[in-house]
Design a protein around this nucleic acid. Sequence first.
DNA 1: TGCTAACGCGCC
DNA 2: AAAGGGCGCGTTAGCA
Length: 627
Amino acid sequence: MLNPLSLDIETAPVKGFPQEYALQPWRVLEGKAQIDCISVAKASGEAILVTNPKQFRALLKSLAGKTIWTWKGTFDIAWLIAYGYEKECRDIIWRDGMIFWKWLDNSQLCERRPAWSLADGVKRFYKDEKWCAPFIKMKKEEVHAGENDQYWETRAKLDAIMTSRVVVAVHEKMDQQRIDSSYITMNGMVAVAGSWVRGVTINYDKIDVIAPAVTVEMSEIECRLGCHEHGQEAHHHMGVNGWIPSKVFSSPKQLGNLLYVTWAMPINEKRRTPTGKPGTDKAALTYLADENPLVTEILRWRQLNTQLSKYLRSPLKAREYLGNDIVHPSASMFSTYTGRYTYSSKTSKKFCTGVALHQWPRQKEFRALIVPREGYKHVEFDAAGQESRLMAEASGDLAMRAVFAEGKDFHSFTGARVSGLTYEAFMKGKAEGNSAIVGNHGFRYQGKFTNLSCNYRIGVPTLRQQARVQYGMDVDFMKAKSWQDAFHNSFPGVKPYWKTAVNIAKTQGYAKTMAGRRMGLMFWKGDDKWSTDSTAINFPIQGAGADMKDLAIQEIDKLFPEFEFWFDLHDGLHYEVLLDTPDSRLIECRTMLDNLDYLKWWGVQPTVPLTWDASVGENWSKLKELN
DNA sequence: TGCTAACGCGCC
DNA sequence: AAAGGGCGCGTTAGCA
C-alpha cells in the first residue's frame, strides 16, 4: 500500500435538465445526465483526467486487473454501469476508502459526530498538512454540476489524490483480519451499484386495484366514528389521489384528545410518550380496544393509512417523478454501525426516487407490487434462523448449539419447552397437524415468538406487549414470564453471554464480530450504560449477520454472475434471475452458500452450521422454497 | 414557506 | 427503576 490508485468521476445533468440528475445515474439511460470527467490519481499527486467520453472505455480497460480505490464508489461504478461498462467494471478490483475508514474507526464517537465524507477523512488523517485546509475549502465551494469545467476537473483530480492518501493512512493502522474482511464488503460494490441503476419495477396496475379499496374502507370508518370531513359521496368522485384522510386519527395530539378527553378513556401511565403525553400508539390503543370496540376501528384505520401513504401513494409519487415504472432505492453499504445495508428513497422530500423497500409489508397483496423486470424471476437466498444461530455461536450455549447441530426445528424445540411436551412428542403432534401445536397461536408459534424476542434483554411487560401488538397473542404477565423463563431455562448460556459480551467489549474497548468487524465502545457510565451494554451484546450477533451477507454477496457475484443482485433485506438476499434458469442452478448456489469457507475468508470457523434457504417465484408474493 | 421535533410504524 | 437491538419514512405541530 505505497501509492494506491484512485478514481473519481464528476457527473452533471445534460443541458436543460434538473441539477439533481447529477446524482441519478439511471438518467444516463434517458439521455438526461452524463459523466463530465473521470480522474485517476495516486497518493503522490500524479493524476490523469479524461473528459472525452470516447476514451472512457479505453481508460477502464487499461485498469483491468488493477486495484482501484474510490470514495463511496458505488456512485462512480453505477455511472459506469449506466454507460454500458459493466464488463469493464467487473475486471477491476474496486475498493472504497470510506468503507475502509469505517472498518477502522467505527465507534460510538462517530455516532455523535457523523462524518464520513472525503473532506472529513482528510481532516482526520492530515490535519497538519499545508494542503489540507485548501482542499476542505475547495470542497465547500458551491459550484453547480455541469458549470465551471475547470473547477470540477480540478476537483475530480484532487478527490482521487486525497482518496489515495486517506487510504494509505487507514491502511497503516489496520490489522490484517479487518483489511481482509473489509475487502469482502467492497467486493459487493459492483453488484450494489448495478442494482441501483437497474432499479425495482413496481406493478402499478395492482396499485390501482388496491388503493380504492383502502380509501373506501378508511372513509367508511371515518363515517362510523363521525370524523368524516368530506362526505362519503365526495370520495367516490375524488379518486385515490384526491381523497384526503381525516387528520383526527393521524395526529397524536388530536387522537389523544378524542380518546382521553372526548371519550374520557383511562390514561395508562406506563404508555406515556417521552414528553409525558398520553400514548396513542398501537400498544396503547390495543389495550383501550378492550373497553371500546371503536378503538379497534381506529387501529384498522391507521393501518390502512400507513398502507395508503407509504406503500401506495409513495410509489405513485415516484412514478410521477421518475417518468416510468422503475424506482431506484439507493443502498448504502456501511451506514449502520453493525454493517447492515440501508436504503434511502427520499420519497417525503423533493425527489421521489424510490420506495421504502426495507419496510415493505409482509402481506402478499403488497409484496405482489414488487416484480422482477420482463424476462426475469424473483429468487431469494435467506440465511436460515440467522440471528438464533449466531446467538448459539456467540454464546456457546450447549442446548442451542445442539438444536442446530442436530438439525432440529428451533421454534418447535422452544415450543415443546413451553408446552411441557418432549421434543419428540411435539414433532409427532406437529406431523399429525395437532392444532394446539401448529394452530394459529399454537405452541410452535409461541416458541417462535419466544425465540425471536428473548435473545436480548427484553422485560416481561415489553415481551407481553410485543406478543399482543405484533403477534396478536393476548397473554397475561405470568404467561409472558413463563415463556421468558422457558427460553432461559432451555438456553442457560444466553444470560452469561450478555455478561461476558459486555466484559469483553469493556476490556478491549470494542465489540467484535467473527470477521473482525469492530464497534468501538467508550460510553460505559451513567445514562449511556444501558445502551452501550446493549450494543456490546447485540453487535457481535447482528454484525456477524452483516459479515455473512457481505461474504454471500461476494461469492454469488463471483460464482453466479448471471444472478443479478436486486436488493438486500438483512438476512435475505434478493436476485433477479433469467426465467429459463433451472432450479438445479439455484440449488447449486444454495449449496455453495451452505458450504462457505468461513475459515478462509474470516480466519475463523463457526461451529454452528450456518445454512441457507432458496426460494423462487414470479414475484415476491409467490416465492416457493426449493427442496 | 421551510424547517425540525415528536410521534407512530413498517421491516429485519 | 426499568429498559430487546438495528434501521428509514410519513404525518402533524409549532416555530421562524
